[in-house]
Design a protein around this nucleic acid. Structure first.
Lengths: 196, 196, 196, 196
DNA sequence: AATTAAGCGAGACGGTACGTCTAGTCTTAAC
DNA sequence: GTTAAGACTAGACGTACCGTCTCGCTTAATT
């Protein structure tokens, strides 16, 4: 793809140390103090950096947190193991996804990001394409494999399957105080592997 | 219930005119300018009232908007008509619910409220009990009737049915730019009326 | 002139307490820390007020200090006592003026204001008309009285007399570390009461 | 004085080209944008140099401008021509001095430097010894010559003469919008050549 | 020629004050 | 006691510079 490395620019290089300190501070403070209670100033203070360094590299507090989430948590769990059946693959995907949904710090960040995506439409765009769509893509791999295998039940369309799966997960996080738990995996797998 | 009216207290009565002006201003400004771009001061200015009057009667901007939504939109559509079957009742419930989900102003308000519920946990509590739970209760009526009728398929638990239904609706509103449309009604009814 | 008082406006009145606290803080901090080392934030903090209150009533830090000087120090010493002679009047004017020029806090403020008048031309305008010109006007009273009395020597023009008097005072403050002292009074009176 | 040249050190030599570019940029920007509106970054940008190069050779922006003034303007006009009389020498000195006082760019720089001398006491020290005192020394040459010649009137002390002369000049620059003009030369010469 | 020691333009860094904005409270006079 | 108006304290915002640092390069004297 990118044969030649980026042309060497003059001037001091970006500090990887500061970058990580900022992401760590953002992640920890969100969990400790709540997203709304944390400002760019607090992130700069906690990380021992200047505000300008944050503004130079991220367009908003939410983008910092999204970057932190991607950097700190193993979000994009590769779930490409082929268990041999749609039901098996789906169960594995849901189990891995739900595990994240029980990590309190990750959940706090996800709720804040989804909230911010509603309030700041530019961030919303970035959040959808950079995060939400990637999760759908991961699920789509399973579904496509099942279809190729002839294993896919004649149920809802692919898009609706994704809407159902992620809808339940997000609704649980955002609108209830119930975790995404193991019984829910069973119910979802059962519901989605039915044929009309 | 309350036989005697509230005892006459001294002083000026609460102005119903101001109350409505505030709710109208909040509702319109949210749609025109975005929730995040509107402050209490703007609502007071637009409604021709003082900030203190708003702070006296509502605990936060989100509560004003929630009140406005309840007052301005016919949110709590009574869907108690018995169509004779679970599938029919469900279809009617979903159709009525989705209709609201296609009203741009209502959707803007709902997205803002769900966002705020994540950022302000006290409002979140009020939003869940005062709004989200009422919707679940409305759905529960159908389900209970179907069960009494012996019409309920042996599918997911009642709570999971609600999670699926509202999960899909909210996910569509919050995470995608696709409306809640009629094909989705069919897919949901089909999925939820299956037997394992 | 102003027959009717200002029409009663609605809303809270300006706080005289805050006004004085701000002027006191500005005056003291300038002497303690130096004008350049004091910011609006420090004045707000020391005075226990908000920054907005300062910005609401004064256009700049220098204007606050100018107001403080006028309020705290008896700057506009009325020197209208008629000693009977130009030399006597002049000596009295200079003596009173020089006394202020030996008050360290006042001198610190005056030096800062004259400096700021060079750096901020809008403030410079206000400083000239609101302060410097008033001092010239006070001197002009003496000169006019001497002329009416037939006591004025045929020396430099009125404007040049003022330039000489205030020039020496300001030059001593700004460009040297020598006070304005009593021998200088004698030399100035002698020089300015000569006839060509 | 310094018999031996500095010992040859290794490394790159100071760039005279950069030095001049910086002084020119400082001088021009002060006149174009005002002293307060110009920062070290702007001088570096305009001169095509790096900030570090400026900080390496000058302690402050004011020192750059002072250096620029000395380099760009013929400030230290040698006025050692003996006209044969105190009055004549004084007139020549004043005429040469006033000429500079009518150069708008020079005046802008002088006002800024005197202002900065009030706000930054370390620079103030350098400005007094490196600039103001030199001007006084130049005037002292005339006065000493007149005294030797027996031509000096028994007026104010030498120091006060200098205070009067430079006081008037600086006061006109700093506190009024009147130029130092030719009539003022006459009045000053007349005033200072009087005998008590 | 290789090495070492400065100076250079560029630009990121930690830090700080700016002037603006909004929140939520308090005060006033009218009703 | 509520109202509209508006000043109040408080504090975060995003910007602009400060003065320092790091980077890769150039230039000179020393090996």
């Amino acid at each position: 793809m990118n044969g030649q490395p980026p042309p060497p620019r003059p001037g001091r290089k970006r500090s990887e140390e500061s970058r990580l300190a900022i992401l760590t501070a953002a992640f920890e403070l969100t969990a400790e103090v709540s997203y709304a209670g944390v400002g760019i100033e607090a992130i700069a203070a906690r990380s021992g950096t200047g505000k300008q360094t944050i503004y130079r590299w991220w367009p908003s507090k939410a983008d910092v947190l999204l970057d932190a989430l991607a950097t700190k948590a193993d979000l994009y769990v590769a779930v490409d193991r082929d268990t041999g059946s749609y039901a098996g693959d789906l169960r594995e995907f849901l189990t891995a996804t739900f595990a994240l949904g029980r990590n309190a710090t990750v959940v706090a960040a996800l709720r804040a990001l989804m909230a911010q995506a509603q309030l700041d439409s530019e961030f919303g765009q970035r959040f959808r394409t950079g995060f939400l769509q990637r999760r759908r893509d991961a699920l789509a791999v399973l579904v496509d494999r099942a279809r190729a295998r002839g294993d896919l039940p004649s149920g809802p369309s692919d898009a609706t399957v994704a809407d159902l799966v992620f809808g339940v997960v997000w609704y649980r996080l955002l609108a209830t105080d119930r975790d995404v738990d193991d019984p829910l995996v069973d119910e979802l797998v059962a519901t989605l592997t039915q044929t009309y």
